[in-house]
Write a protein that binds this DNA or RNA. Structure first.
Lengths: 144, 144
DNA sequence: ATCCGTGCAAAGTATTTGCAACCTA
DNA sequence: TAGGTTGCAAATACTTTGCACGGAT
């Protein structure tokens, strides 16, 4: 798998080892690209082909993948840490739409924030490297 | 105190009772306007004048205040729920600047998002009622 | 007097950690 | 072989809940 090759290289670069568990966890994230899986969900999917994996390994691996910049940790205030592949964000950052009524999460894929971030650098002397934007409101279904 | 009067009215409106603990917790939030206190910090401050209050009451009251729209719950991914007075947001919504290096949190007080939210309504049929924006990057100090 | 609110402690839930066995390099 | 990695279980950390007592209306 393509993902494995990159992972192997990146792990070597940081002196870490390439293991079946780490590969399997990344595979799950690749297979579910576009979703925002919780640790528990990732654990469940990984167990399908890796029955004896422990959830501590999932937590540790997700921490590692985030440190390597392979994943982004997301937070929708539902009590779970969620993850997505960071690659998707190379071109654009996501804006998440969270419905206050049904809790559904969808995405906007536009980035109109460059202007704002430029102003922040000028006025606050703060260099923006990444952002997480959560819009709370009512989705199409719940507005009916 | 001014805050007490509003609280009393709002509590009555929802069939809830006005108690010393609820008043004291709101007082702490008013005294620390502009900060983003964690539940634990609020608990510590309230105990100064209310030595025997329990932390469960703080959690329950903050939940109530949020339901009443008096406070906003914030989340800076540091493992704590944080709160601020919602009033501050009547005029403008906050954008938080979170430094990846030192963890400091500051604020931008501009709202250039109206245009984007209008587009979201048109393209995603999603009606934005509120938003939380977290910019991750490097603050002035850490860029030196 | 009623019954909501409180404090305490126990329970819950997500996540982290210690450690011996295991596996990658 | 050496040392990073794993699985298990115990430990943490934050938050919620059950219940009897206390206080607001």
């Amino acid at each position: 798998m393509l993902g494995d090759f990159d992972l192997k290289k990146q792990l070597k670069n940081c002196g870490c080892r390439f293991t079946g568990q780490r590969s399997a966890i990344l595979d799950v994230l690749v297979e579910h690209k576009g979703e925002h899986l919780s640790t528990e969900e990732i654990y469940t999917y990984v167990k399908e082909n890796n029955a004896h994996i422990g959830i501590a390994t999932v937590y540790r691996t997700l921490m590692l993948l985030e440190r390597l910049g392979i994943t982004n940790k997301l937070d929708f205030d539902d009590g779970f840490s969620r993850y997505e592949l960071a690659k998707e964000n190379e071109v654009h950052l996501h804006h998440h739409l969270i419905c206050s009524s049904c809790g559904s999460v969808s995405e906007v894929k536009e980035d109109l924030l460059d202007k704002l971030e430029q102003q922040i650098l000028e006025k606050n002397k703060f260099l923006v490297k990444n952002h997480i934007i959560k819009f709370y409101g009512l989705c199409e279904n719940c507005r009916k």
